[in-house]
């Protein structure tokens, strides 16, 4: 069996989707996922990661799902010329072939609105990414301390 066929087959078994419906999202690799612990469940949480497209086609990320939060969405922080920061939904995110898109502090983040449980340092939570080709990718995001600055803490 060719390696690519094997990868595609393994992926389709993993997520239970027919290989035919996928075009590109199986080539997405998630690196350095992390998030901060929360105080209670009233405040929204945030998660960060790098999405790397190892394939040859652009891949579009449509949205997120997680049992941790009712409304997960990718938001983008912008700071204007006067130093005023604001946040807005980032919309669809296109990851060009061979490139990476980073969700990092001060840029884009997975905004976890309506937390269902407290985010406890040392635990992880599953975060599923839904791609335009119908593919899904679930990663376990480590929860670091409230004052964490990056994937290393």
């Amino acid at each position: 069996m060719r390696k690519s066929t094997f990868t595609a087959l393994a992926f389709s078994i993993l997520v239970g989707l027919p290989t035919a419906s996928l075009a590109g999202s199986e080539d997405i690799v998630v690196e350095d996922a992390w998030s901060r612990a929360s105080i209670g469940i009233n405040r929204p949480g945030a998660a960060y990661m790098t999405l790397r497209n190892t394939g040859t086609e652009p891949v579009t990320l449509l949205g997120l799902e997680t049992p941790l939060a009712m409304m997960p969405d990718i938001h983008e922080t912008k700071t204007d010329a006067n130093g005023v920061s604001s946040m807005a939904p980032a919309g669809e995110i296109i990851i060009p072939p061979g490139e990476s898109v980073s969700l990092e502090p001060g840029g884009m983040h997975a905004m976890l609105m309506r937390l269902q449980t407290k985010m406890v340092e040392g635990e992880t939570f599953p975060l599923t990414m839904n791609f335009a080709d119908g593919g899904k990718l679930t990663v376990n995001v480590p929860i670091l301390g409230i004052a964490a600055r990056g994937p290393e803490g």
Binding site: N42, G45, T77, P105
Partner: peptide
């Protein structure tokens, strides 16, 4: 404190 990105980042910085 209900700010998920900018404020914890500033406080951590």
């Amino acid at each position: 404190t209900y700010c998920p990105d900018v404020c914890p980042t500033t406080l951590s910085d």
